[in-house]
Design a protein around this nucleic acid. Structure first.
Lengths: 151, 151
DNA sequence: ATTATTGCAAACGCTTTGCACTCCC
DNA sequence: GGGAGTGCAAAGCGTTTGCAATAAT
């Protein structure tokens, strides 16, 4: 089961960094990898509270950051001045098309990108640890109509 | 002179959209294209206030957005949960390398990207209006040391 | 026992909003 | 003169922080 593997990976990550193993951290992990689509830290907090969790905002924010460092979550930014996350468990690397009209976010995979990032970094004297690539535009989707709150 | 051209372009843009021509808007334009490097809306506001302008925050935010729509400024986002801008007057299209250690931001130009964006958009049924491409990593620069406030 | 982690609430930084006044058209 | 634009202050939103209580080591 992939949740077991995620727990194991997080546990190893925590030990490696001399972080303590707490039930709260695994509670956050569980909710985060369960979450469909992209989410902000506060959304996850609210969602957990709604599900009768006793977790605190501080712990959610702190843990989410650890999960991102660990690679179980990916940090995103779609130009809305808030950090978004998405589960990286059982997903392959991808980037996003963002409809500036209705807010819909679609994924695409472009294998060329990794090589390109590597080439550019080498050329510029950078040791790259990641990248972010977003394309903005309009869906050709006929019912694309200022919904503004999909993900 | 390029400032004249910028004024002219902004004036045309404002008329086209039935926006009024006000001195405040051109005051913001002047300061924005003068600003070295990337800036947040509030930074520009503070900078203008420091230079004894009577402008208001609301006007700066409003005008900057118009300037971005008009193409005289480019909107950026470097993963800090705030919108950054940079002058697009007399600059050629480029993207950024961001050092996660010292915060330095360097520019690069990769001609392949436009074609790539077009290809992906076509393939996905998107009418692209722009993209954002950032590479995160560490400078190989020896005096890269957690400065956190360059641009 | 020691000290990281937690929960809570308050503070923070950037951005948006409401409203009365102004001035472009 | 009408209504978009302005200035101001307050509120909004996501995020961070300080501190006392708690619990992992």
């Amino acid at each position: 089961m992939e949740i077991e593997r995620a727990h194991e990976e997080f546990r190893r990550f925590l030990k490696r960094g001399d972080n303590r193993i707490t039930p709260e951290r695994f509670e956050v992990l569980d909710h985060a990898i369960d979450y469909k689509g992209h989410f902000g830290a506060d959304e996850l907090y609210i969602s957990m509270k709604t599900n009768h969790s006793g977790i605190s905002r501080a712990t959610v924010y702190n843990t989410i950051e650890l999960l991102a460092q660990c690679g179980l979550l990916i940090k995103r930014n779609f130009g809305e001045n808030k950090t978004r996350y998405e589960s990286n468990v059982n997903k392959r690397s991808h980037d996003h098309l963002i409809c500036t009209n209705c807010g819909a976010i679609r994924e695409f995979t472009e294998p060329k990108l990794h090589r390109l990032v590597k080439e550019i970094s080498d050329q510029m004297g950078f040791e790259s640890s990641g990248y972010s690539f977003n394309i903005f535009g309009k869906c050709t989707n006929p019912n694309c109509k200022l919904k503004k709150d999909d993900n």
